[in-house]
Design a protein around this nucleic acid. Structure first.
Length: 306
DNA sequence: TTCATTTGACCGTG
DNA sequence: CACGGTCAAATGAA
């Protein structure tokens, strides 16, 4: 093995390691913000988690084992109607499938199962020579056409970590993102849409049930030391694209959000305070955030693969 | 009542 | 035939 490739591997390992760390911090932040009832800030955390998940997927994709080769279509598929060896069990089609190919899978290692997407568990299996069961998840929006699935398994050597294998891609994200802030596409216009992590597909006229909750993000007595903590984070991330996504939200005191009203069966505009999305974090658990990790995460941006 | 999870059955693949 | 992926009835939670 050449020195160059060894360096590349080292850098990549470090990069993945730091992304894992950053994702963990994002998960902590999400938990923290949930407790504070700050919807817009929580959504930021969701976006962070998604970003990390996608990045890890891309970085890890080359390491995917190709057990079944790389030809043909990917993913599991149901048996055709005509494959009926046992007519008596036509109705019960459990287990009737074709074993999936893994050529299109992406593996990630994360301290949390959370990745910002809505998953529904559909199975669990004890796998040979593994200490922990493997859990099978499909996208919540499967019936809207999203074929994304994932398998989650705790790592035997490091039970704190979960190895997640993703299959297929989310086709539901466009629908979900339609109601989310898009700072990267149009920083000005996106301010007029507040993300609520929409739980309904776009091809419906309205959400099947309201997942939107508005709560005041302003706290009466924000702690000074916490605010200084956030200033540290801000200065650490000033040059990062992540922070560039956060900053425009702070510059506005309020945004107009589209909120589904089940009574009028229409979307109404609501003003929502967002200026304190970060400043409102007052929990002591904020101090548990790994500041060193965040700074190192920023350093990762300086790594170049050449 | 609705929706999510659990769990054992089922069956294709190697 | 063993293993692993999926289904769907049963069960639990909200």
């Amino acid at each position: 093995m050449s020195i160059l490739s060894e360096t590349l591997i080292t850098k990549r390992k470090r990069l993945i390691g730091e992304l894992v760390k950053g994702k963990k911090i994002g998960a902590q932040l999400q938990t923290l913000l949930k407790n504070n009832g700050s919807v817009s800030a929580e959504d930021l955390a969701v976006k962070i988690l998604r970003s990390f998940t996608e990045t890890l997927s891309v970085l890890s994709s080359n390491e995917t084992s190709q057990i079944y080769g790389d030809g043909g279509d990917t993913g599991a598929s149901a048996c055709s109607e005509e494959s009926e060896k046992k007519p008596a069990r036509v109705k019960d089609r459990r287990g009737c499938y074709k074993r999936r190919r893994t050529s299109d899978s992406r593996k990630t290692v994360s301290p949390t199962k959370e990745d910002g997407y809505a998953w529904r568990k559909y199975g669990q299996k004890n796998i040979l020579n593994t200490e922990y069961p493997r859990c099978y998840y499909r996208c919540t929006y499967k019936y809207e056409g999203c074929k994304a699935t994932k398998q989650v398994q705790r790592i035997k050597e490091d039970p704190i970590l979960y190895q997640t294998t993703y299959f297929d891609h989310h086709t539901c994200t466009d629908a979900m993102r339609a109601s989310q802030i898009y700072v990267d596409s149009d920083p000005v216009e996106s301010l007029n849409l507040l993300s609520f992590e929409s739980k309904f597909p776009s091809n419906q006229d309205h959400p099947s049930r309201s997942m939107i909750k508005i709560s005041s993000s302003a706290k009466e007595e924000p702690k000074q030391d916490t605010q200084s903590d956030m200033s540290d984070i801000k200065s650490s991330l000033e040059d990062s694209s992540l922070w560039q996504e956060i900053v425009p939200m702070e510059q506005k005191s309020s945004v107009s959000a589209l909120v589904w009203d089940p009574k009028t069966r229409s979307y109404d505009h609501h003003d929502q305070e967002v200026v304190s999305s970060l400043n409102s974090c007052t929990s002591n658990s904020m101090h548990e955030l790994d500041m060193e990790g965040i700074n190192q995460w920023c350093d990762v941006e300086n790594i170049h693969f050449d």
